[in-house]
Design a protein around this nucleic acid. Structure first.
Lengths: 240, 240
DNA sequence: TGCCGTATGTGCGATAACGCACATAATTGT
DNA sequence: ACAATTATGTGCGTTATCGCACATACGGCA
């Protein structure tokens, strides 16, 4: 049984890898290493060199910035729809932000040098990575706008929806404390908002778990930011 | 006299163009068209196709998102240190955000097709544009973080400092209303904050003009976001 | 089964920024 | 010189979120 589950794991679970032309996918696949990505693992630290690019399959990674006073805020999330480490091929090879796993799971990684070799062919891999980076830019932009103008409830709904999109099930294994850290708000604020959403029948939760009961309801309570980003990902990253 | 000033205009005033190897600069220069970029001009609308890439010299451009309800927020600014229209070479050729001139001046533009031709050589131009895009990503990220955690005064100081950096003089031609729009806050809030900064001797202003009197003072009142972004621009975009 | 660390619930007062309604002052154009 | 327009100043009640101090309750593990 364990072996059977294990056999289901494939790099194709990552949408970006799945979009590569077969020839390139096969060339790359040899170098893709399946890795477990447990909750809390740091994929890179601020200012640290990137040794790998990561393609999450069942895990979700948060790109965030930690301030001098310890407060933090998420800049963007990356799941099976993306790749962690765009600074690798954009140049500079590091960023002031950091990447940590916020939902444990699996993913594939490839050595920085091998990734660069394929990128530098200036073919489909490069074009795909650049389009993804453009989608990431939209996500970051919308995070900035959302942080400025929208309520905590709207932001929490947005965050839940994105995280659910990157998740196989309707249940997220996630504490309120962690969500608060991502959104850069107080834990108590999340407790209150989650209570409201549960009373409204949109979610249900127990210690460390959140289950979505009514996705359309969540969508109606979030801001336009969710659909703006979602549509942009579809536009930029549908195969053609 | 007018002719003499006009003769001083050169694409080299844009730091990115100045970083290009001479051979490429010369190839490009033929296609660079000097354009006046008056306050308020829209370089592109959300969802609209990009027909040119713009390299500001004395103008400053704001990338911002306008929400359904009309509220807006700046995502990043671009001056003589950058280029407007990265979506051109990243793929997709449009964005949900828009670009408008927030400080009138001049710049050079190049037709999208010609820009792509040079980019697609996958040489120094491509590498420079990607490094710039990485710097832009840092700026956007930090905007998101700053919007979340920092006070209006910190944010206004940050904005003034960036704008001064992209400006030849210590005086900005700029209304408080415009600054409020950039930061996505109330105009009255800017009036109050500007009053505080003036009383503290850091700036002085009159109807439509702001003069910086004490840069170190402004730097001491802003948040870490200013220096994080500034250092990242230096790291990524100093010639080597 | 019971204990203990961790997660969640709740109730304050404090505060920064908001929304609105104006008053005043500086330019522009005639 | 004057009116019209645009920019800035000010006051005041409202609100969302914060910061802190706890109370409570779940659930893994001895």
């Amino acid at each position: 049984m364990v072996a059977a589950v294990s056999a289901q794991k494939t790099p194709m679970q990552n949408h970006l890898l799945a979009l590569l032309p077969q020839e390139i996918f096969e060339r790359i696949a040899t170098h893709l290493e399946l890795v477990s990505m447990p909750l809390g693992e740091a994929l890179y630290e601020p200012g640290g060199q990137l040794h790998y690019a990561y393609f999450p399959t069942t895990s979700i990674v948060s790109l965030h910035y930690v301030m001098e006073n310890g407060a933090s805020a998420e800049i963007a999330g990356v799941g099976n729809d993306g790749v962690v480490g765009v600074a690798l091929f954009m140049g500079g090879n590091t960023t002031p932000s950091q990447a940590t796993v916020c939902a444990g799971g699996y993913g594939y990684r490839i050595k920085a040098r091998l990734m660069m070799e394929e990128f530098n062919r200036a073919g489909p891999m490069m074009r795909l990575m650049l389009r993804y980076t453009q989608a990431l830019i939209t996500q970051m932009s919308q995070t900035a706008v959302c942080n400025r103008h929208h309520s905590m409830e709207q932001q929490m709904c947005r965050w839940l929806l994105f995280t659910l999109d990157r998740s196989a099930s309707h249940e997220l294994v996630m504490t309120q404390e962690l969500i608060a850290g991502m959104l850069g708000v107080r834990r108590e604020g999340i407790t209150e908002t989650a209570g409201n959403l549960q009373r409204a029948g949109l979610i249900s939760y127990r210690r460390g778990h959140i289950t979505a009961l009514d996705r359309p309801g969540l969508e109606s309570r979030t801001c336009e930011c969710y659909s703006v980003v979602k549509k942009e990902f579809q536009r930029l990253l549908s195969d053609v």
